[in-house]
Amino acid sequence: MAVKPDWLRVKAPQWERVGSVKEILRDLALNTVCEEASCPNIGECFNAGTATFLIMGPACTRACPYCDIDFEKKPKPLDPTEPERLAEAVRRMKLNHVVITSVNRDDLPDGGASQFVKCIENIRALSPHTTIELLIPDLCGNWGALEIILSSQPEVLNHNTETIPRLYRRVRPQANYERTLELLKRSREIAPGVYTKSGIMVGLGETDEEIRQVMQDLRAVDCDILTIGQYLQPSQKHLQVNDFVRPEQFDAWQAFGEEIGFLQVVSSPLTRSSYHAEQVRELMQRHPR
């Protein structure tokens, strides 16, 4: 088993600020992927007063062996008050940029598309100047559901690639690499004004050449923003880390990504799909749509 190196250490958070954010989340009975997926950046993000909200959960209909979100519980019916409570949290936290993601809800006809739309509508009613990023599942290839989501015009549509094609069966057994690319391609066609984004995790046995090919595949479907981060094993029951990638390699991928045309590449060992997501507001000023 690979030993965690020094560059993966995180600073101890200021628990006073973390507690303030947690108090709001508990008061409004909301879930965050920061907590549910054991994100290593929870202290930094909570201290900055930001969070990635996890809707329609916490139970997921898929059992991806890298993910710490619960899949053993039966999903509950959608809560009609969730969009209102989420919007109230955004207002209380005074967020400039909010990220909304969800568990997979393959049990729902639209994969939860309508709940995403209601969340956006409620946020814009209370916080009209907040930019919104959605991190969505693949919707089982339901492109009608994708159109429903994009009809609400989020500023950013994110769908993570996660890994290289060779590892999909082991890492994402209920997903499909080609379907992920198709979702990003269709998003650009349906809503050309929406920035598209995807993310890759490394350290599961992929090669540099394979990562670069995925990056080129994402650019071929006109993906705008890319995140690359180190996979960390949440528990002993999850996939083991194959290797810890050195920071210099992340720098090399960032340079390559910028060279082939991504508008933004966030690449470092501790990068996650929503890490420093608020920087998209600066990107929108530099590259308006």
Rank of each mutant, 00 (worst) to 15 (best):
A2F: 08
P5F: 02
D6R: 13
R9M: 09
K11M: 10
K11E: 14
P13L: 01
Q14L: 07
W15D: 04
E16T: 14
S20W: 08
V21Y: 08
V21N: 06
L25M: 06
R26T: 15
L28N: 11
A29F: 10
V33Y: 12
V33I: 15
S38I: 14
I42K: 13
G43D: 03
G43L: 05
E44I: 14
E44C: 08
C45R: 05
G49V: 02
G49D: 04
T50Q: 11
G57H: 13
A59H: 15
R62W: 03
R62N: 12
P65Y: 11
C67T: 00
D70V: 05
K73D: 15
A87G: 10
A89T: 06
V90K: 12
V90G: 08
R91D: 13
M93D: 11
N96F: 08
H97K: 06
V98P: 06
I100D: 07
S102Y: 10
N104I: 00
N104W: 01
L108T: 03
D110N: 10
S114H: 13
K118N: 12
C119V: 14
C119Q: 00
E121A: 13
N122D: 12
R124K: 14
A125M: 09
L126S: 12
L126Q: 15
E133Y: 06
L135E: 08
I136C: 11
C140L: 11
G141N: 08
N142T: 00
E147C: 00
L150A: 00
L150T: 00
S151A: 14
L157G: 11
H159Y: 11
I164Y: 02
R166K: 15
Y168Q: 01
R169S: 14
R170A: 12
R170I: 05
R172N: 13
P173D: 04
Y177P: 07
Y177E: 01
E178C: 03
E178W: 13
T180R: 00
E182K: 10
L183K: 00
R188W: 03
E189C: 02
I190N: 07
P192Y: 08
V194K: 04
Y195V: 04
K197A: 02
G199R: 03
G203T: 10
L204M: 13
D208T: 14
I211Y: 03
R212P: 05
Q213N: 15
V214S: 07
D217T: 02
R219I: 09
R219E: 03
R219G: 03
V221R: 04
C223Q: 04
D224Q: 11
T227C: 05
P234Q: 11
S235Y: 09
S235R: 10
Q236C: 10
Q236W: 09
K237R: 15
L239S: 06
L239Y: 13
V241E: 07
N242E: 12
R246Q: 13
P247K: 02
P247A: 00
P247F: 07
Q249W: 11
A252M: 09
F256I: 02
E258G: 14
L263F: 09
V265S: 04
V266R: 12
S267P: 08
S268R: 13
S268T: 15
R272L: 04
R272I: 04
S274F: 07
Y275S: 12
H276T: 12
V280K: 05
R281H: 05
H287V: 15
H287K: 15
R289F: 06
